[in-house]
Design a binder for these strands. Sequence first.
DNA 1: AAGCTTTCGCTACGAGCCGTAGCGTAACTG
DNA 2: CAGTTACGCTACGGCTCGTAGCGAAAGCTT
Lengths: 209, 209
Amino acid sequence: MQSRTSAPRATGGRPRSATADAAILAATRAALVELGWSKLTLGDVATRAGVAKTTLYRRWAGKNELVVDAVAALFDELELPDRGNLAADVEGVVLQFAAILARPEAKSGLMSVVAESIRDDALRDRIRSSIVERQKLLVLEGRARAQQRGELPEDNDPEAAARTADLIFDVIAGAVVHRALVSAEPVDADWTRSFTRLLLNGLTASATT
Amino acid sequence: MQSRTSAPRATGGRPRSATADAAILAATRAALVELGWSKLTLGDVATRAGVAKTTLYRRWAGKNELVVDAVAALFDELELPDRGNLAADVEGVVLQFAAILARPEAKSGLMSVVAESIRDDALRDRIRSSIVERQKLLVLEGRARAQQRGELPEDNDPEAAARTADLIFDVIAGAVVHRALVSAEPVDADWTRSFTRLLLNGLTASATT
DNA sequence: AAGCTTTCGCTACGAGCCGTAGCGTAACTG
DNA sequence: CAGTTACGCTACGGCTCGTAGCGAAAGCTT
């Protein structure tokens, strides 16, 4: 689960303190809330966690990796209860995303690490595996359910199905993130309902109501 | 146009060099391409621009403001030719966004300043007025055209219309940004066509084809 | 032309953070 | 018990930040 610095992990010797790991990640989230990404320093995080700065550097290569792991933990709670129909499931996904994005440590951290990942492929993979893929699973799950219910057509061409799933994911995640972080408006029940209607019925069919 | 540091601008005296302004912004974009946001330093930008570091600080308060202005200039070229119908206009908007986001200086800069804006309201307003509102105008323009053509219903309730416009904007901009910067996949003609069909017809109506 | 005002380039500076090295100590294994 | 690894602590060179102070340059005004 923890995708920290590649663990050489020879046999004997003193084991790494799991307590320290948790303390560091918690301290990182607290620092994100108070200071934001740019003013967050690793020395400060170490002090908050009650840990020596060198200990922190032994486990994480830098600020980017540390924050990714700290933020990724927020996505552990993601799951999608079956609400009986496609529209309700979509609203469920959106509200799940929104609940996480509403937390200040997610706001401060997520965009920053994604920005950094543009010039760092390793970081991008790390984000993908520990955050993005977990979100995408919810979309795939909801889609599979809808197909079982007959609300969406079955996939005949698996490759085209994958492209469609990617498209839907980008639309949902992108819209929620843009609403929450760029427009800085709340992703509440009203907005979620309007968005779901738009996603399911399309622009032409959905009235301005 | 230039939303630089609030200009005291008394009467006489040596005027600020407009050449220096352009050189600094160009140098900032070049540094963004080469170094990315986190490794970009103001001292380096000043050197590239052939300008003293103090000159740079006299005009911009810091890294954030400078990069916003440097990136905002990329959005000057935004405009939306009338392509005759709603679907074609939507594709036009998407491809306009995509063309800008494909440039490395936009990739590196945009996400970073948005991330910083989460903890800086003044920066958020600056981004809104110099970047986001310009994008939104395209959406509003396309929407008005579609209503004139009869492709979309007229607005009866202006407040609801504004909410709908915001929703559409978040969906379009969010999806394109997410595709380009998070999924890191190209926003090409194929994807644009699929996205447009989804946006106009909805999930239920659009086949996986 | 002289005088006033503002900008410019340059140098220098204290401050803060980075990331690492070195050391002695602590914790766990066979 | 010996071997191995993690830990806390201190110290360090290097880099960037943002500002101050200076003399010179570039305009505008009378």
